[in-house]
Design a protein around this nucleic acid. Structure first.
Lengths: 206, 206
DNA sequence: GACTATTGTGAGCATTAGCTCAGGTTTTGG
DNA sequence: CCAAAACCTGAGCTAATGCTCACAATAGTC
């Protein structure tokens, strides 16, 4: 394969409706193909084929393959209930409810298309901008959780920042794993266990 | 790239010492190259180059690229303190100590070469045998943890199996993440938080 | 030294996949 | 209705990479 075009801007921006439509078909097809075949085997030709457009058109709107996955990821973050749960109830006594809300949120998010999410999480190429975008978002969420921790009276913890990172990552990864490879265990069971783990962590002091 | 040789056996088994030496140099070089460049960019030619042997020799002892990573993974599992902590102290009152032992174990394991481990965990190709081997190993560890849970008197939990999976995965992934991208947080802090999380989870009942 | 088994070599084959570009088709504006 | 802009096409270029194979070198044996 030739050296990837590292440009981030496409060579053309859609001005007519049909162009915008083409762009959307490409993204839809890409989401399907990546979910089905993974990143490496999800070739641009396959994406074009599924989108029923020519490979040339694909490269009119995306500078390279990475940019397509990147766009999907950004869309997911933006659309995301990932950002959801902005106003969480911090009033005393509702810690478990708050934790459950966060976890429900994660579960919802991974319900859409776990296979695509798996590709984005596990196989996403490491572009500078992308990493930063995801990082920023992660920091935001971590800050949210840290606020919950510090705001709650019952929590006696060492380092709220470390705890926040720990919780965020734990919830994300466990949810991801559970949704990606569903066991014969009902979601409720999983949810309850995870809620218990985090809640007890936060409210415990022994 | 041509279709990979799906054979598992190499075409030649080392009989002389120099051959065994060559094999080891290949593995050592592969470990370095995979850690440095990742799986995809860790080409067989690069491995051969670093091992200072010809590409031909490499394919004398490994049927294909996948087999090299597979061998490294198996070595890691076998050598592994991954299996360690066989006889854990289940006596009452030492739950925290037990949990800490498990977590220390994980930390030790990820101290060797986190970058190589990252490749093995995140980029390892999906060969049937490999997956099974790793699965078996995971099940063993999960069973260990489940035993701890059920053996311990203070633990009131919903589903011990789900809990065991949850704990195993949580410990592994968090440790992996921490060791792979070390923050300006000392390991002790991380360890303590993780221990607190799991211990409180197991001993909590609210 | 001679003969065989084992080991090592590396140019290059085969294939793949990202991406280009010269030219055709459709839409828009006047 | 016509010209220009926007859009679409797809054969094929380019480069990368897993892997082969005919041959050379070395080690073991008598």
């Amino acid at each position: 394969m030739p050296p990837a075009d590292r440009r981030l801007e496409p060579r053309r921006k859609p001005r007519q409706v049909r162009a915008e439509l083409t762009r959307e078909r490409i993204l839809a097809a890409a989401a399907h193909v990546f979910a089905e075949h993974g990143y490496a085997a999800g070739t641009t030709n396959r994406i074009a084929e599924r989108a029923r457009i020519s490979i040339g058109s694909l490269y009119q709107y995306f500078p390279n393959k990475d940019a397509i996955l990147a766009e999907l990821l950004v869309q997911h973050i933006d659309r995301g209930t990932w950002t959801g749960a902005d106003e969480l109830d911090l009033s005393p006594g509702t810690l478990e409810a708050t934790v459950r809300a966060i976890i429900r949120d994660a579960i919802d998010n991974h319900s859409d298309d776990p296979r695509l999410l798996r590709v984005m999480i596990e196989e996403a190429p490491v572009s500078q901008e992308l990493v930063e975008a995801v990082d920023r978002h992660g920091k935001l969420r971590a800050a949210q959780i840290r606020d919950i921790i510090t705001a709650h009276p019952d929590t006696h913890l060492g380092d709220p920042d470390v705890a926040a990172d720990l919780i965020l990552f734990t919830v994300e990864m466990n949810t991801h794993k559970f949704m990606a490879a569903p066991r014969n265990v009902p979601v409720e069971t999983f949810e309850n266990e995870l809620v218990a783990m985090i809640t007890r962590y936060l409210s415990g002091d022994r």
